[in-house]
Design a protein around this nucleic acid. Structure first.
Length: 238
DNA sequence: GCGACAG
DNA sequence: ATCTTGTCGC
């Protein structure tokens, strides 16, 4: 316990996922886990910490770096972070995107020393064909409240929200409201917010706005993005 | 049948 | 996701 390497606190999250062996298997996993999504819990209205997760890929596509940054929810200062370098765990298939990044993201979460109160994911939650996007998957597997923030839609119909920051319109899949199209900056392309796990859509919206005092994307996503890009570059010398 | 399709 | 030049605007 006094050897090499940084301190590591086990079980901050403690979740593990085995990659599916086929598309059919992946679909079955989603079917099995979908009922476990908590759509009720409004989640923490004033969390002390918020985590951002993101992944960067090598151009060869055979290597990736997952990063998680934990921010003080009030000051938006980074208070903890972790990365995990590895390989994509699944081919990219729209609707099955989570299986690609989940193992690396969970590994990064396990390396944290602070247990975040909310996860802000780079991808959709309920705004998914089977209502089980990456944010739902991460939420269910970790048990943590989770929010999905996508840069582009995966599905749904919507009307453009007013140009001012804070304006939003419902994102609908048929008769269901699966998320919100939220303007985080005046006159800038909106983002797509959806519930992941244990958070209401209202709280998710408020949280995203609190994380975007200056840029279109949440500070959580921005800090995680920078971290995984740097880690990827540092991990693979020519 | 055709196009669209988180990252 | 990643590649990729210039360009408009603060």
């Amino acid at each position: 316990m006094t050897t090499d390497g940084p301190e590591r606190v086990p079980d901050v999250v403690g979740a593990r996922v085995d990659p599916p062996g086929s598309v059919a298997e992946a679909l079955a996993v989603q079917e099995r886990l979908r009922p476990l999504v908590d759509l009720v819990g409004p989640g923490p209205a004033e969390p002390a910490t918020v985590a951002g997760l993101d992944v960067a890929y090598a151009e060869s596509g055979d290597r990736l770096a997952a990063a998680v940054t934990v921010l003080d929810a009030r000051t938006l200062a980074v208070v903890d972070s972790a990365v995990s370098v590895g390989r994509p765990a699944f081919d990219y298939v729209p609707g099955l995107f989570a299986f690609r990044e989940l193992p690396a993201l969970l590994d990064a979460l396990d390396r944290l020393t602070v247990r975040p109160e909310v996860l802000v994911c780079d991808g959709h939650g309920l705004a998914h064909p089977r209502r089980f996007g990456l944010a739902c998957h991460l939420g269910v597997v970790t048990g943590l409240p989770a929010i999905g923030v996508g840069k582009t839609p995966l599905l749904g119909a919507w009307a453009p929200p007013a140009d001012r920051r804070g304006a939003w319109t419902p994102l609908r899949d048929g008769d269901e409201v699966v998320g919100r199209v939220l303007r985080t900056r005046d006159g800038v392309k909106p983002v797509f917010v959806s519930v992941g796990h244990r958070v209401s859509l209202d709280n998710a919206t408020a949280r995203v706005l609190a994380l975007t005092p200056r840029y279109r994307l949440p500070e959580t996503t921005r800090t995680a993005d920078r971290l995984c890009r740097d880690a990827l570059a540092a991990a693979a010398p020519g």
